[in-house]
Design a protein around this nucleic acid. Structure first.
Lengths: 267, 267
DNA sequence: CCTGTAATATTATATTATAATACTTATTAT
DNA sequence: ATAATAAGTATTATAATATAATATTACAGG
C-alpha cells in the first residue's frame, strides 16, 4: 500500500526508481565491509531479503561491477568500478587544474600531496600524488575520512559559512580515531575558527598515529572552499613547529595557485 | 510482450533487474560524453526515452551520483562516484602490493609509473603514480585505452593463451590513435608475440604522439598475466634504444617483484 | 514580446520486480 | 565416510512498481 505519508515528496514519488538505489546499496556494502561477501552477508549488510540480494548481486555481476569467485561463490568489487573514477575526474575542472599543480609541488618538495573534497560530513580524497610508502588505504583515491578530525576537513569548513560548519560538526559521527582525536563540539569548532584565521588547518595525530596533517583550502571567487590541498608528514622526523614553518606555506601556496587558475577561465 | 526468444538465458530472465542496468547506462553516457548533459542528450546517448531519462537521471541525482546545475538544468558526474574507486582498490590484493612497489620505483627513478588491468578489449589504469606534468587524462585513474595499441595491453596479452590474445585483437575496435598506430591483425599479433619473447611490451607513438611506452606483465603462479606495470617516456628526450636499455629492465623488475609478493601469501 | 524547445509534473496501465518455495551444492561435524 | 546443516541457485504466481503518455511549466532565441 503506497500510502501518502505526511512528509511526502510530491514529485519524487514516481520519479525515483527504487531498484537503482538497491543496486547501489549492494555496492555500498562492499565499500564498508572491505572484504568479499556471500549472498547471505549481502542480504544482512543491505537489509535486502535473500531473493533481492540474489537478484541485485546477479545483475551487478552480469554487468561487470561485481566479480564472483566460483569456488567460494562470494562476490567482490569488479574492475569496471574504476570507470566511475574516470567519469568524475575527467570532466572536473578543479581536478584538471589541481593535478598539474600537485604533481609540480610534489616533485619539487619531494612530498606526498593530496586533494580532497567535502561530501556530507566526510572528505573524499580525489587526487593523490603519493611520494613515500604509507598505509595502503592512505594512497587510494576515493578514500573517505571524517571531516571534523582531518586537516582537509577543517580547512574546508573554515571557509564555509559558520552555520554550515556547525551543522556538519553536529551531524558528524565524532568517534575518536586516535588517542588524540578532539571530539567535543566546541573544541572542534575552535579548531575550525583557528584554521580560518591562520589560512590553513593542521591536525596532530587527529586521525592517524604519528601523523601531522596540514591542509589549505581551494576557494571560489566568493571565498567559499571547494576543496583542500593536504600534505601529511610524520613524527618524529617532523615536529609540529617544522610542519607549520615549512608545510603550511607550501599547501597554502599550492591551494592559492589552484584557486587562481580556477577563477581565471570561468567562475 | 516478453516473447521467449531463441537464444534465451533460462535463468537470468528473472534474476536480472533491468532498472539497475539502465541506471548504469546513464552514468556510462557521462563517461563517454565527457561533458555535462541535459535530459534530451541523456535520452539520445542512452537510447532511453524522454520519461526514462528523466526518471533515472533524477534517481541518480537524488542518490548523489549525479550533480545538477540548477541554472542550465544539466547533469554532471557527482563526487560520490569516487566511492567506487575506493571500493575496488581497497580490497584488491594486487593493488595493495603494487602501490608500494610503484611508489618506490617511481621515487627511485624519478619517473611516472602506472599499473593497468585488462577489461574486454581495453586496459584500465588502476594505479597511477605521476611524476611529471602530462596530459590531464593521462593522470586519471580509471582511464581506458585500447589494449591492442598500448604497451600495457601488449604486455598482458603476451602472457595470456595465444587464442585469447587473438580473440581480443579480433574483437578490438582497431581505429588508429596516431599516425603510427599499427592496426593490422597480423602485425598486432606479431607485436604481442615479440613482447612474450622479450618479456616486455613497447609501443612507439602507438597511442600518443612522441610517447614511448614500456610495460611488463605481473604474472600469477601459472604464468598468466594479471596486470602490467607501465612507464611512459617521451621523444626527443628519450630514444627507443635508451628506453629499451633503461626502462624495460625497470618495468620488468618492478613487475616481477609484484608477481613474487603476490604468490608469497595466497596464490 | 512572441515562438519553439526542453524540462518537469501527473496519472492510468501493465510490465517487471518481487518473494515464496523448491532444489542443488557446499561445508562441517560426527 | 557419511550425515546434517547451511548457503547458494532456480522457478513461478502475484502484485507492486516502473513505465510512457500527456499536460504543464520554464527557458532560450529571434
Amino acid at each position: 500500500m503506497p500510502e501518502t505519508a505526511a512528509g511526502e515528496r510530491p514529485k519524487a514519488e514516481t520519479l525515483f526508481v527504487n531498484s537503482v538505489e538497491k543496486g547501489f546499496r549492494v555496492l555500498e556494502a562492499f565499500r564498508t565491509s572491505g572484504r568479499p561477501l556471500g549472498l547471505k552477508e549481502i542480504a544482512a549488510a543491505t537489509g535486502l531479503d535473500k531473493s533481492a540480494a540474489q537478484r541485485f548481486s546477479n545483475t551487478l555481476h552480469e554487468l561487470g561491477y561485481l566479480a564472483k569467485d566460483p569456488r567460494t561463490r562470494r562476490y567482490r568489487p569488479g574492475i569496471r568500478l574504476m570507470d566511475f573514477s574516470f567519469t568524475y575526474l575527467s570532466q572536473n575542472r578543479l581536478a584538471e587544474i589541481a593535478v598539474a599543480r600537485l604533481i609540480e609541488a610534489g616533485k619539487r618538495y619531494q612530498t606526498t600531496i593530496n586533494l580532497c573534497e567535502l561530501i556530507d560530513t566526510e572528505i573524499i580524497y580525489t587526487i593523490r600524488i603519493p611520494h613515500e610508502r604509507a598505509s595502503f588505504v592512505a594512497t587510494v583515491p576515493g578514500r573517505r575520512m571524517p571531516a571534523f578530525c582531518t586537516a582537509g576537513g577543517t580547512a574546508i569548513l573554515a571557509f564555509r559559512p559558520p552555520e554550515e560548519a556547525a551543522q556538519v560538526v553536529d551531524a558528524s559521527d565524532r568517534r575518536p580515531l586516535t588517542d588524540h582525536t578532539i571530539v567535543e563540539r566546541d573544541a572542534v569548532l575552535a579548531r575550525i575558527a583557528r584554521a580560518r584565521r591562520q589560512g590553513y588547518g593542521i591536525g596532530i595525530e587527529q586521525s592517524l598515529p604519528r601523523e601531522i596533517s596540514v591542509a589549505a583550502p581551494v576557494l571560489d571567487n566568493n571565498g567559499r572552499a571547494l576543496a583542500a590541498v593536504q600534505i601529511p608528514v610524520y613524527k618524529p622526523q617532523w615536529s609540529v613547529r617544522e610542519a607549520r614553518a615549512k608545510i603550511a606555506p607550501l599547501v597554502m601556496e599550492t591551494a592559492r595557485s589552484i584557486s587562481g587558475s580556477l577563477m581565471g577561465s570561468d567562475g
